[in-house]
Structure formats: C-alpha cells, structure tokens
Design a protein around this nucleic acid. Structure first.
Length: 283
DNA sequence: GTCCAGGAGTGAT
DNA sequence: ATCACTCATGGA
C-alpha cells in the first residue's frame, strides 16, 4: 500500500476536506477509509496523523487533487484578519480546497440550487449510475461521471435522475459544452470576472454556482460564493446592515463578495470555505 | 400541512 | 438594472 508522508508544514485534514460539502462523490467507510470517484478512477484513502495511505491513483494525483502543493499555512495567515475567521480556521484546520474536474463540478452546482447536500449527493449519484461508465473496485461497482455527450445521447434517461426544474439546465449546458471545443482552456485563461461571466452564460449557472465552479475547479481563490449560510454568517458578524429579506438580491450578493474580497484578500475563497465548514458553530 | 435547503430564470417595473 | 415570484424535490 502506497504511503504519502506529509511534511511538518504541509497541514492537511482529509476528514475536513472531504466532509465540508465541496465534493459530492466521496463516502467514508469502515476504519476511516474514504472511497471516492474522480474522473474515471476510484480512490481509496485514509489518514493517520501525517501519513496518507491510498490506492487507485499515483501519489502525484493525490498531491494535485488535494492541492498539497499549496502553502496552506501561508494562505490561512493571509486571510486571518479577525476573531471570527480565526475561530473558523482553528475549528477546521487542514481543510484544503480540492481541484475538481470542471464538468462534474458544473453539473454538481447546477444541481445544488435550492437544495441541501444530501439531495445534491443523491442527484450526482443518480446521474453517474444512469449515464456513467461502470468501474469495478474491490468487488464493488462504481460509476464514472458521464461526459456531456453521454448525457446528450441518452437524454430521455435524464428524467430518472429527478432533477426537478434543473433538468433542462443540465441538458442544455451539456449540449453547449459538448459542442464547444476547448471551453475548459478558455475559462482557465480568462481573468476572474470574465471567466465568471462566461460561466454565467450557461443555463442554470448564476453568480453563486459560477463562484463555486471557479473556486473548486479552476483554482480561482478570489471567488467568494454566497449561499444562504454565508449570507447569514456575513450579516451576523461582518455586515449587520444587510436586510432580513428572504431573497438574496443581486445587489446584496455584490456587496458581500466585494466586502469579502477587500477584507480577506486574494484568498477570500479559502476564508469562505472555512466559514462555511464552521457554520454549525455560528447558528 | 409548513418550512427549508451551497439559487437561477422569468417577467414586470 | 433591479426586484419579487416561481420553479421540482426531499427531509424535518
């Protein structure tokens, strides 16, 4: 069994990273083993202190996927500007933003609107088992996440995935991406605001989903996704002047993400994820 | 039954 | 440009 030993400064918590709600295709089984599907590979991994035991992919893949190359202590120091974020950092220390496959991330966050994490997880599992290539691992059957064309070719099966009103959004975006050669590189090469507009031109992707996709799949750490929880936390601790209204307006979204960018700096996306992960403490 | 969940598209101002 | 309303689904 391959082992990856973390260096002293290479702070990492596998549990925090996979439990915080950024990914939907990982499950924790017995004895601390996590099983996940990434692209068309099954990864089995567990952490014991500074050692990562894993199977399914090379160590290089593990390092890249979990962004172990990033200077996490330096990033956290750069956003640690007040007692609230300080407490969240201490609470969730070792959480790293993973590098998700972009297409799967897009579908995940189209499916996330007005939903909770268990529901999103079930939708992604259904899409995978309905359209994805079968993969066997340790005698169990898993499914790769389907390519856009896999969904388009058998689109009549999409209704079985119970996406509700998101159904046409996933289908339209799958078709758009299937016919746009090099869409991924294009977004990679655009600055944040332009990449955001580009993503928002796809059906079902608004400001919040675009920010999640940029943060979780395109290494854009200046993105600050605002959902109901983050809005709640920001009103409670940073922007008390925010209204109590039930709907988050576009203007409020801009107020919050602009404040966050100014207050937390270039890595405000990391601050967002720590605040979100620590949300249970805030209520 | 009501309310909420990692919101976005639509149509009226 | 900005706002309020509506949109399936599932769990509490």
């Amino acid at each position: 069994m391959p082992v990856l030993t973390l260096k002293p400064h290479q702070i990492f918590s596998l549990d925090q990273t996979l439990s915080c709600g950024q990914v939907f295709r990982w499950r924790k089984e017995d004895h601390g083993w996590w099983y996940g599907v990434v692209e068309d590979q099954i990864i089995k991994i567990r952490q014991i202190e500074d050692q990562l035991f894993f199977e399914g992919v090379p160590a290089k893949f593990i390092r890249h996927y979990f962004s172990l190359d990033l200077d996490l202590p330096g990033i956290l120091d750069s956003v640690d500007h007040d007692p609230i974020i300080h407490a969240a950092i201490r609470r969730c220390l070792g959480l790293r933003i993973v590098r998700q496959p972009p297409w799967e991330c897009i579908v995940s966050y189209i499916c996330s609107t007005n939903s909770n994490i268990p529901t999103i997880t079930r939708r992604i599992a259904l899409i995978s088992s309905t359209f994805g290539k079968e993969i066997e691992f340790e005698g169990k059957l898993y499914h790769a996440f389907p390519r856009p064309m896999d969904i388009d070719r058998r689109s009549e099966k999409l209704k079985e995935c119970r996406l509700g009103y998101r159904h046409p959004y996933v289908l339209d975006t799958a078709r758009e991406i299937a016919r746009t050669k090099g869409w991924e590189e294009k977004i990679c090469n655009l600055p944040y605001e332009e990449a955001r507009k580009e993503l928002m031109s796809l059906r079902g992707i608004g400001p919040k989903a675009a920010d999640c996709i940029l943060l979780f799949a395109f290494e854009t750490y200046e993105a600050f996704p605002v959902d109901v929880w983050i809005r709640r936390i920001m009103k409670q601790h940073y922007l008390p002047a925010l209204t109590e209204g039930t709907h988050l307006t576009g203007r409020e979204y801009e107020t919050i993400r602009t404040f966050a960018r100014d207050h937390f700096g270039d890595f405000c996306g990391y601050a967002q994820e720590y605040l979100y992960a620590a949300r249970r403490e805030q209520v």
